[in-house]
Design a protein around this nucleic acid. Structure first.
Length: 763
RNA sequence: UGGCCCGUCGUCUAAUGGCAGGACACCGGUCUUUGGAACCGGCGGUGGUGGUUCGAAUCCACCCGGGCCAACCA
């Protein structure tokens, strides 16, 4: 289970949201949804669907009138439904909240937490500072509340030109997080909104609209991608200061789906469309859901891909092979088979009667004969095979037709190439072959093995079709961000205007999947088929271990140069904690601590944390000989507790208790395990060491016979593990100790257990 | 000269202080009228150095590497 689902389960268990699970998918309708959105859709709708009463809202985040269109809204709805998800009655628009948002802005204004800034855009940018330098306050930052209210009201009334004023939160222009440097909340825009028309001359910014929309919809888990990490702070700030009712929605970020050889930024997708590099948002080469759909990729495949990829916080790129696998894996069991020859080579069967025609049958879906009828393949004296299935000078390992050699025409006959005919230019124009009549139906006699099987069509009965060989849009796994078009693949679409398919393909309806045997999966184009015209898009090739080995079709599978892992890991010169001290003051304190007896690691930890250092100083005074252990406990255990236990507070830690704890451990009165339990209590409830100890069950099982009983039981239960341990799998000792700890509910003395287990296993 | 986040097989991802596991890719084999599919097997990993601990991928420190942030975009 991924970390987000774990969090949702936890929240459900603790009742944080009263048992509700509400997620949302909030696209801005300024383009088409793409494969990257699919991950978010699967996550948000998936989680909602996994819990009774869970909901996922579809919210159009339409706060920028200049770029948004209802055409995009409709396309998005269609794509989400196609992917297999349903928002039920929960369709929302951020633009429906404009009135409420406006009132929230007034709340901030009243609290003096927002102001109207009349600086120019350039001035605002200038005064924001940079990541390394603090910003400076706007001269309008201290406008009186009444003036702010008046100005903002007039902004809303449309009295000002675009750019004349903005509304900003009043936070801190020197904040280390740039997002918090008085972020803009509203700007003036005299544009016509696709839903609100000219109702509003002011529009809320993302940071303002998003958290409040979530809150208004009573969303519980607001999931977004990693690039919004910095925005979480303003998300929480705004909800708090506007007085949004708790329990408030919380934002959690996950890594976006990044696929090799694919670009998914809206800017770039838009550019591809507008510059005419593709024929539209739904061009089958596009990574948009509409494009993938048109190419023949199924929603099942996309969902399977998202499942395989998982959800985590580590930035990642997905190998394109994973996408291919998901597509093939789904299509393999649903796409009927057919023959289609892309690059025909005429074959005349010299010993086959001129006027004869017979019909062979073949499975349309191997492995599932009852659910799928056999197809019929007419056969005659003249047939067409793939030019690439014949080689005059075959590379080693070539299994298809060669001069004087045999190959199987799948489901028909084994033939032998007797003669190669050339045209005036010397190019092979025809093969004259003989049929082995004993192999009717393509069945070779038992004594003879014919390895090569090729697909074919009867020349007289072949159906012309247009085939579009779709390839990746970019030649590089990661197109350069500054110039992504340099990686554009000019051969991303190769059109075969007149391929020849078996007769059964005639009359295929638009939107039909096929596997053209030995070539790949194809999909009849939903838009371009019609009027007797058949157009097929190649969804994905078949896996082709021959091409991979021979390097023949390198267009489809370029040798992915395995990127040499950055092995510079060790490289550093600055390895000691002392050298990492950032100031003389830090260095001085560090050296002092080390001189006092603290280890370097502990000293470094203390220097960096003034509150820790402060407690340390007080505890040390009470137990000077214990300096090293006090420092170690503080840095190693207390820091961990503080980070993992939400109820732990350093302020509650009593310095004398800490000193006493260290002393007890040093003198052997408290085992490390016991001390850890006590430490947790000290951070939660404070008080003296004795008080903490009194409230805890610190009993320990050190009795050898009891431990032995437990161990015997476990050894009997896992004889194969014991054998593996004796066989050299030393790591298994931890398993046995762990089992004892589990069964004794943490009470066993681990040190004794470990010794005992080692002895027992040896004997 | 900042803040935040992230480093586990080639790739994606589990392991929540106790057996480093799965998937894709790759390699080999069986089978096969698709050099496909299916089935079986194999290769292969905790960025580094210290520390805490009976026990560390997991906690602590430092280092190395990567990402995000300076639109009146989202």
């Amino acid at each position: 289970m991924d970390f987000i689902r774990q969090m949702v389960s936890r929240d459900l268990k603790t009742g944080k949201y009263g048992g509700r699970v509400v997620t949302r998918f909030p696209p801005e309708p300024n383009g088409f949804l793409h494969i990257g959105h699919a991950k978010s859709i699967c996550l948000n709708f998936g989680i909602a669907g996994e819990h009774p009463g869970g909901r996922c809202h579809l919210r159009l985040d339409d706060t920028n009138p200049d770029t948004e269109k209802s055409e995009f809204v409709e396309a998005m709805k269609e794509d989400i439904r196609w992917l297999g998800f349903d928002w039920g009655e929960h369709l929302y628009h951020a633009s429906d909240y404009f009135e409420a948002l406006y009132r929230y802005a007034m709340v901030l204004l009243d609290k003096g937490l927002a102001y109207v800034d009349s600086s120019t855009e350039a001035e605002i940018r200038e005064r924001r500072g940079s990541v390394n330098t603090p910003g400076t306050d706007s001269p309008f930052r201290d406008r009186p509340v009444e003036e702010n209210r008046d100005l903002f009201r007039r902004m809303r009334a449309g009295e000002f030109a675009g750019g004349a004023h903005v509304l900003r939160a009043r936070i801190d222009m020197a904040h280390p997080n740039m997002v918090m440097r008085d972020p803009l909340l509203y700007r003036i825009r005299h544009s016509t909104h696709y839903r609100q028309g000219d109702e509003w001359p002011i529009y809320p910014m993302y940071d303002f609209a998003h958290c409040l929309s979530d809150s208004l919809e009573r969303v519980t888990h607001s999931l977004c991608t990693l690039e919004f990490e910095n925005n979480r702070e303003i998300y929480d700030w705004l909800l708090e200061h506007v007085g949004a009712p708790p329990p408030r929605p919380e934002q959690t970020e996950f890594a976006p789906l990044v696929l090799d050889y694919v670009v998914t930024s809206k800017r770039r997708l838009k550019q591809l469309v507008h510059a005419g590099h593709v024929r539209g948002w739904d061009d089958p080469r596009m990574p948009t859901l509409a494009g993938l759909r048109r190419r023949g990729v199924t929603p099942e495949a996309i969902r399977a891909l998202c499942d395989m990829v998982g959800v985590a916080r580590a930035q990642s790129r997905v190998d394109s092979g994973k996408f291919d696998y998901a597509v093939r894996n789904d299509l393999n069991h649903r796409a009927p088979r057919a023959f289609c020859v892309l690059d025909p080579l005429r074959v005349v069967l010299t010993n086959y009667p001129e006027e004869r025609e017979e019909t062979f049958t073949a499975p349309s879906l191997p492995g599932d004969p009852q659910r799928h009828p056999l197809r019929e393949l007419p056969f005659g004296r003249e047939i067409l095979i793939e030019r690439g299935d014949f080689a005059e000078n075959p590379p080693p390992g070539f299994r298809r037709l060669v001069p004087g050699g045999e190959a199987r025409l799948k489901y028909a006959y084994v033939i032998r190439c007797e003669e190669v005919v050339r045209d005036a230019g010397g190019r092979v124009s025809e093969l004259r072959c003989s049929v082995d009549h004993a192999t009717r139906g393509g069945v070779a006699p038992a004594d003879r093995r014919v390895r090569g099987a090729v697909h074919w069509v009867a020349a007289a009965r072949a159906v012309p079709v247009e085939v579009r060989l779709i390839d990746r849009l970019f030649r590089e796994p990661e197109p350069p961000p500054d110039d992504f078009m340099s990686a554009f693949n000019p051969k991303s679409e190769r059109i075969v205007p007149r391929a020849l398919a078996e007769p059964g393909v005639a009359g295929t309806k638009p939107g039909t999947h096929y596997q053209f045997e030995r070539l790949g999966y194809f999909f009849s184009d939903p838009a371009d088929c019609g009027d007797g015209r058949l157009v097929f898009n190649r969804t994905v090739t078949l896996r082709d271990s021959w091409a991979a080995r021979s390097g023949a079709d390198s267009q489809r599978r370029p040798v992915a140069a395995p990127e040499a892992k950055a092995e510079a890991a060790r490289g550093g010169r600055r390895q000691s904690p002392e050298e990492s001290m950032r100031s003389d003051e830090e260095r001085r304190r560090f050296r002092e601590l080390v001189a006092l007896g603290a280890s370097e690691a502990a000293a470094a930890g203390l220097v960096r944390s003034p509150p820790l250092l402060e407690v340390f100083g007080r505890a040390r005074r009470e137990y000077p000989e214990g300096t090293a252990s006090i420092a170690a406990w503080l840095v190693n255990e207390f820091t961990r507790l503080l980070g993992s236990d939400p109820e732990a507070r350093l302020e509650r830690l009593n310095a004398s208790a800490l000193a006493a704890l260290a002393r007890d451990v040093d003198e052997g009165d408290l085992s490390h395990r016991q001390a850890r339990t006590v430490a947790a209590t000290l951070l939660r409830r404070g008080g003296s060491l004795e008080e903490a100890k009194a409230g805890l069950d610190l009993s320990e099982i050190g009795d050898e016979s009891t431990l032995r009983g437990l161990l015997d039981e476990i050894l009997a239960e896992y004889p194969e593990k014991a054998a593996a341990y004796r066989g050299g799998q030393a790591g298994l000792l931890g398993f046995f100790v762990g089992e004892v700890m589990k069964r004794s509910r943490g009470k066993a003395d681990p040190r004794k257990t470990s010794r005992l287990a080692a002895a027992l296993l040896k004997g």
